[in-house]
Design a protein around this nucleic acid. Structure first.
Lengths: 89, 89
DNA sequence: ACACATTTGTCCGTATGTATC
DNA sequence: AGATACATACGGACAAATGTG
């Protein structure tokens, strides 16, 4: 169990942990990262807080999310799954 | 249609109703209780709320659940049915 | 073997209300 | 007033187990 600092939002601190695990290869490209429910369990946070974590990681391109399935580590070759029809391909 | 009180969670109030019906013999031991879909219809609640109701009743041992089949009233004599492949049949 | 419907398990997206800082 | 955090609640979607045809 991690200790939450008082001077920074919890969702940022949890996002840091996930980011570190990806960098360390604990979660590899294409594999699933913990669900919001998992984060709730592991870090003892509410669902909305866990949701903020995933949204932050998604918006920076670290992960991508499939509704009803889960979130996955982005592939280095395909960091941002495209909402991009103009320049891709 | 029941009236939901504002001071208690809906899933608790629905669980109360199911519990009362079991106590009254409306749903008897071994017989099926309404599915989550049924609860959605009857009480006008969302599926996740219905799911919470069933989880609460399951965790207190009032019912047991078989995925793909439904949930059933626990037998007083057999409150928690084992996964038993050796002696069944 | 296959398709289909039903049901539960699990997932994410979102909104509201409350409390705290 | 605003940001953070929690609990509740609704909605939509995919997966797996079960039973029937």
């Amino acid at each position: 169990m991690i200790e939450f600092r008082q001077d920074r939002p919890r969702w940022e601190q949890v996002a840091d942990v996930i980011r570190e695990r990806i960098a360390a290869g604990v979660y590899r490209p294409g594999s699933r990262v913990p669900s919001e429910n998992d984060l709730m369990q592991e870090f003892g946070i509410a669902r909305m807080t866990a949701h903020k974590v995933m949204r932050a990681l998604r918006e920076e391109g670290t992960i991508y999310t499939v509704r009803g399935l889960g979130s996955f580590v982005s592939q280095p070759s395909d960091a941002k799954p495209p909402e991009d029809e103009t320049s891709s391909k």
